[in-house]
């Protein structure tokens, strides 16, 4: 930048504006920006244009950079042949359910751990955080066995949306995120509410939740993206074609469908997440920093 920003970095302003420093600065900037744009947008470009190629063109080596004869028909084929409307609806349904369940139960858990402080609350919190140490892949088998025959109730949850919703709700990370946020709400507000005769339920509803809108947004976004991009778990617990999620659906059809149509289907499946990201960009960024460890 030409103007003095006021912050002194390792390389001084005068070094930057002089002949050689300036050349190096701009070359580096252009190379880095161009390089990262290519790395991040390249795959997206490849996907969108790949879907426009004809079946013959997509199979050829070397691949062509632009589709010679764009065929938007592929997108329509993908929508019809893969029954994408049903797949997208399923995924959306699971995502909305996961959001609602998480908002209700995770908020309740975080509220009681942060403000109501039951006996052994810290032990419970430590146990919850302990589950974060176990990689998701390790839990796949025990979780699957549990879903096949739910303890006590003895119901089989295969093909039931609860097979996705219930494991999603037991999300220690989101509970911890919410608890940390609730911890930052001053105790005085709670005391004032108590003086006015509010029950703890009323305090949660009228004081804590309105203040926590940003973090509730973050949790919802995490829930939606987690459901949308999950593959192995829905593949295992949603075996029948009517209950499949979009990622599993595309994978199952990939074998018998032309490659360009499959890619078109992936583009369509990716659109909702891209839109969600563009709308909630700021919330997602703030969510990434609230939960993380700050060095």
């Amino acid at each position: 930048m030409a103007q003095d920003s006021g912050t002194r970095t390792l390389i001084s302003q005068s070094q930057l504006s002089r002949g050689r420093g300036r050349v190096i600065y701009w070359t580096l900037l252009v190379v880095v920006v161009a390089g990262f744009t290519l790395v991040f947008l390249g795959p997206l470009y490849w996907m969108v244009t790949g879907a426009l190629k004809s079946g013959q063109e997509i199979a050829q080596t070397p691949p062509s950079l632009f589709p010679k004869d764009p065929q938007p028909q592929n997108y329509i084929d993908a929508w019809n042949n893969l029954a994408l409307a049903k797949l997208l609806f399923n995924t959306f349904y699971y995502a909305i359910g996961a959001v609602l369940f998480q908002l209700v139960f995770d908020t309740a858990a975080a509220y009681s751990l942060s403000k109501l402080r039951p006996m052994f609350g810290n032990v419970i919190l430590a146990l919850m955080l302990g589950t974060l140490m176990i990689p998701a892949m390790v839990l796949i088998v025990p979780q699957y066995v549990t879903v096949l025959d739910l303890p006590i109730l003895h119901i089989n949850l295969l093909d039931s949306p609860f097979a996705i919703w219930l494991p999603m709700v037991a999300n220690a990370f989101n509970i911890f995120l919410l608890k940390r946020f609730f911890d930052s709400i001053p105790e005085e507000l709670m005391a004032a509410a108590l003086m006015d005769g509010a029950t703890s339920m009323r305090t949660l509803w009228s004081i804590i939740l309105p203040l926590s809108r940003p973090i509730l947004g973050v949790v919802s976004i995490f829930a939606v993206t987690a459901v949308w991009k999950d593959f192995l778990w829905p593949k295992l617990v949603m075996p029948s074609p009517e209950t499949r999620t979009v990622s599993v659906g595309i994978y199952t059809f990939a074998g018998g469908t032309p490659m360009n149509v499959v890619i078109a289907a992936s583009v369509i499946a990716a659109i909702p997440t891209v839109i969600i990201f563009l709308i909630f960009q700021r919330n997602i960024m703030s969510g990434l920093t609230t939960g993380s460890l700050k060095g």
């Binding site: 176990i134 990689p135 892949m137 390790v138 796949i140 088998v141 025990p142 699957y144 066995v145 295992l236």
Partner: peptide, 19 residues
Amino acid sequence: HGFFQNDLNGAAALGVIML
């Protein structure tokens, strides 16, 4: 192991090793 060879125990054991 778990879902094709019908060996859920083996799969769980592999999970523990990975852990």
